[in-house]
Every structure is written in structure tokens, then in C-alpha cells.
Design a protein around this nucleic acid. Sequence first.
DNA 1: TGACGCCATATTATCGATAATATCCCCAAA
DNA 2: TTTGGGGATATTATCGATAATATGGCGTCA
Lengths: 250, 250
Amino acid sequence: MPPSAPRTRPNVVEPPTQDRLIADALIADIVEWRIAPGAWLREREVAQRFGVSHAPVREAFRHVARVGFIQIVPWRGAHVIDLDAHAAIEVFELWKALFGVICRMAAQAFNPADGQELLKRIEAFKTIVRETPDTLAHLAVSNSIGSFIAHRSGAPMASELLDRVALFARWQHHVLRVDYLESIKPRPGIRSAELYEAVCHHIVRGEADAADRAARELLAFLQKHFEPALDQFLAERKAEPAKRRRPPRA
Amino acid sequence: MPPSAPRTRPNVVEPPTQDRLIADALIADIVEWRIAPGAWLREREVAQRFGVSHAPVREAFRHVARVGFIQIVPWRGAHVIDLDAHAAIEVFELWKALFGVICRMAAQAFNPADGQELLKRIEAFKTIVRETPDTLAHLAVSNSIGSFIAHRSGAPMASELLDRVALFARWQHHVLRVDYLESIKPRPGIRSAELYEAVCHHIVRGEADAADRAARELLAFLQKHFEPALDQFLAERKAEPAKRRRPPRA
DNA sequence: TGACGCCATATTATCGATAATATCCCCAAA
DNA sequence: TTTGGGGATATTATCGATAATATGGCGTCA
């Protein structure tokens, strides 16, 4: 199960201003495929949809661009970036590397209390994986463990980057995730729980190098399961028309 | 010598609008320490300095926040993030991991022509390192090789992230870089050139795993040289007063 | 004396309007 | 038929002004 960084940093409270709300809504729309890859976003259109002026929409576009989902081209507008198989490979490589960094630093940062908490969570994960076949439930617990490690790793930059990469992965996998997770056999649950347990034990013991290596192994295992389906999906999608260079006129 | 990702993506031209110019100027000011870590930026002040309205300044703040140098707190303003030894460690870990990803992907993406070009550049690097003791000159050539690898690696996301991390490292090392580089002995030049050469050979031969590992080794070697001086500098800086929670009033 | 709440003020967030710019369409010429 | 130029138009970038909000100081009360 892929780990996931927390969506909000622990020590930073972010008052909900219009631009943040709009940005979150846009990101959700993109990740859930309500807005297609390659689509253009027009300030006025989005502004009308949310019932605000165009200024906060501009700010929101900057937020979304920071996460990486859209590109802003001066005097041209903002468009959702496109999906391709090569980018999917890159996302997984980044995921491995960043999660490795986080586990490495967690191994150096964890105190005994954190370790106890982590071991408790991984035991719960193992239990759930053994007792229920619900892959989405596994995913939820697995994600919470990843968030916990990232929170306590003392690596805020890496956590933020992992967060971005995880969002990308979620975007790429969203369409096929549920179907695919339910169809693959053998289910990755048991084996990934074992691998995740190894990661956690290394972190608790303070073995940075081993934690890094184990984290990469975990994600490499998941990569092997996800990549074929993603490739197939993207190959099918290739037949679709290329994105327009400019939004269509009204 | 630390490699560096390109500052602008190759396939994206960015027309110079006010906000981009202001953002670039602010980033340069921060990296070169003309603006201190922890300082607050006020829209009006920056707007007056650049002779524009506050709107493009707001956009510029978003750009700088995307790179990670400032944090924007709604209704409070934007402040340059602070430096500490722990963040410096994290930056180096990220640098290792991201450069590893890029070299790994470069090993899979390089064609024979790219390989020839790369080997030519590494030979030039070795020559310069042997023939001149000018550490800054080594650095420039080394950076250009890193940029070349990132450009041709087919990993735009990783390149952008490495770019950000490299900017951070430059920021952190700026004050002590020249003095330190000139003072350390033995100079890291010869050994780092050898390590860099190994990285390049693995890339040219398409050995992804080996390229990844060699890239990490190169940066681990540099890490060993840089960390003590950086730690010392940051320890000395600790005596300074903490950053204000709000900009001082006029 | 210490703590709590109100108010003045500085600052940012948002708005509506105007200036600047890139693209598209149409037409003429080779 | 193709290519290049010019104008119309849609869209973003910028501006100046107003609304919303957080902070710090001051006064009051226990």
C-alpha cells in the first residue's frame, strides 16, 4: 500500500481564505478527474463558478501550479498538465527516493515513544490485512502510517515533496485504482505489510541506511504491481485527441 | 562539486512579466543574503521598491513560495524561512536522493549522442580540476554537467525538485562557500571528479542502479566536506535573536 | 499586580475597471 | 493552393480603491 504524506503540515495553520478554498477545490477536481488532463482553465469561468472576482482565482492558480498540476503560461492562461506513461515512471521513482529519505531521517529522529506508537500501528495494519480482504481499508491504514512517519521524521521539506508526489500518484492511479486493486492476485496486502513492517523496525532501531533501503524495496514491490495496469491505461488513452493549444472560444 | 539543475526548463519559454521579474529578483536577494532569513516581506514596501502596484508583488510572492524560500501566512504576510542545521542535513539528503533519481533515469534515457557529449564534458572537468586550483571554476563546470544530465534525463519533475533543492543549498552555503572551499584540504576537486566520472560512465552504459548509487556516493563525499563548516556556521548564528512574529511597525 | 476584553491601526484580501498581449480569422498576393 | 499580413477579439496583467482581518496597546476589573 503506498504511503502518503500529510496534506497539511502539522505546525502551520492555514486560515481558509478564498484562494486556498478555490485551490483545494481545483486540486480535488483534477485528482478526481472531474477536470481532464490537458484542459485549459479560464479565470473568468472559474471565478463565476465560485462566485468571486478573478483575483482570488489567480491566486488559486498559483497554489495549484505550486503543487504541479497546472502550468501557467503568461498571457495565455493555465492548463492542466497531461498524463503519460513516462511521467508515471518518474513519479514512482521520486516516490521511492523521497519515502526513502523520510524513513532515513525518521530513523534518526524517532524517540522511544514515537517508536512504540509506530509499532502499534504496524501491528494494527498487519491484523487488518490478515483479517479483511478490503484493499481500500488496507490503503487507508497504510496511508495513515506513512503520514505518521512523515510527521515525526523531522524532514518537513521532504514531507512536502512526498505529499506532492503522492497527490500525483493518486491522480494517475485514480481511475484504475479501485478496479485494479480488487482484481490483482495475489493481493499485495500481505507482502506489503511484511515489507512495511521491516521499514518500521529499522526506523525504530535507528538504522537509517536499512530503513532507506527497506522503504525503497516496499515501493519497488508496489511499483511492480501498479505499472502494468497504468501502462495499459495510458496506452489506451493515447488514442484521444491532443490537447488544444488554447481554450476554445465562446 | 555539487551538480545543479537548470534554472529554467528547456521546453518552456516564460515571457518576462512583472511578477516573474520581481520573483527572480527576490529569490536572488534571498540566496545572496541581501534579505536575511526570517525577515518579513511587506507587499507595499516591495511594490514601492520595484515601482509597481501591489498585485504583481502578490503574484511574485507566490512564485517565491513555490520555490520554498518564503512562507505566506494569510492576513499576516510573507516571511523568509529560517535556517537551521537540521534543515541543512535534510537538504543534503534530498539532494542525494533526487540526483540519484535523475542519474538513474538518465541512464535509461541517454542516447549515444548524449553519452558522447557527457563524456566530453567530464573529460574537460577532469582536465580543469587537474590543471587549475580554482575551486570556483571547478564548481561552474561541475554545475554545467549536472544541468546537462538533468536536461537530458527525461525527468522534468525530478529536475525541477532538484533545482529547488540546489537553490536551497546555494542559499545555505553562500556565506561560507568561497572561504570554505578555498580553505579545506585536501581539496575535494580530484576525488569528486573521479566520483563524477563514475556516475557519467554508468549513465552512458545505461546502468541505472549503478548510476543511482554512484550519484549518491558523489554527494555523500561532498556532504562529508561541507557539513562540518555548515554546522559551525549555523551554531554561531544561533546566538542571534529569533525572528519577529510580525513585521515591525512604521 | 495580573488577566481579560475592547478598540485603533496596520496589513492583507478582494473587487471592478483599464491596459497590454497573443491568437484567430479573413483577405490578398504569389 | 499556399503563405503572409492586418485587424478584431478574447484573455490575461496591472492598477487603484474598498472590505476584511490580525495584532498590539490601553483601560478596566478581579
